[in-house]
Amino acid sequence: PPQTPIRAAMNSIKQLRGDLTSSGDQPSTNLDTYFKNCTVDPKQDVLKRLETLGQAFSQRFGQAVGPRCIVLGRQRFTLGVKLYYKVMEAMLKSEEKRLSVQNFSKLLNDSTFHTSLLACALEVIMATYGESSFKTGGYNHPAATAAGGGDAADTNVCFPWILDVVNLAAFDFYKVIESFIKADPTLNKEIVKHLETCENLIMERIAWRTGSPLFELLKQEHEGGAAEQVEPPAS
């Protein structure tokens, strides 16, 4: 029988939490091995970054949703960390198979990669709980209603809110989306759709704002390669 919106939202949350039950909020043995295989072990930086971003996220979540919700923010962050580690491990396994390498030192010591991956994980958590919803702005989403988050918030925490919290450029966030979806086949249709909407928003608008790293990349491509003939506009 078709589910009510609240039942569907509750099941989505239950599924997410169930999928993350076996995931720890610390790196797994496999992930530790990948860290140790690096020329420079990134583990301490990873843990330190999570500590810093965890505090920032909880504070901003509390400011946005309500001061009583800082603890809720902490819970969301913890789930986000579990998903972050889970997807990281899956990505590395996939890359190991694809590239036949075990030393991912450059990637795992790239702060932007870790911040992007974490931001994507947090966006998935917030979308599941209805806090990040393009349709309703998060306030009237069945999950948000069912969770009792009925207090009016001062700030909408819908995407791209998370980018500002973790100080991440939209173009860098964009880079992880497809690999994230590929690495976690348990993501449900609604969440994949949400990430796809984020992706489109970035490509159509946010990545083209002043200060985006996209412009530097385009400049490097233009200067690095041979000058190409510009095609005249077709009539």
């Binding site: 990505m91 450059k106 990637l107 497809e178 979806i181 590929k182 993501l187 449900n188 990430l195 796809e196």
Partner: peptide, 21 residues
């Protein structure tokens, strides 16, 4: 199941996207 379009080729992955190839 979803209908997300995966655009990356077999020789493209997260390592290339973060300039780590």
């Amino acid at each position: 199941s979803h209908d997300y379009h995966f655009g990356l080729e077999d020789h493209e992955g997260i390592s290339e996207l973060f300039d780590c190839d």
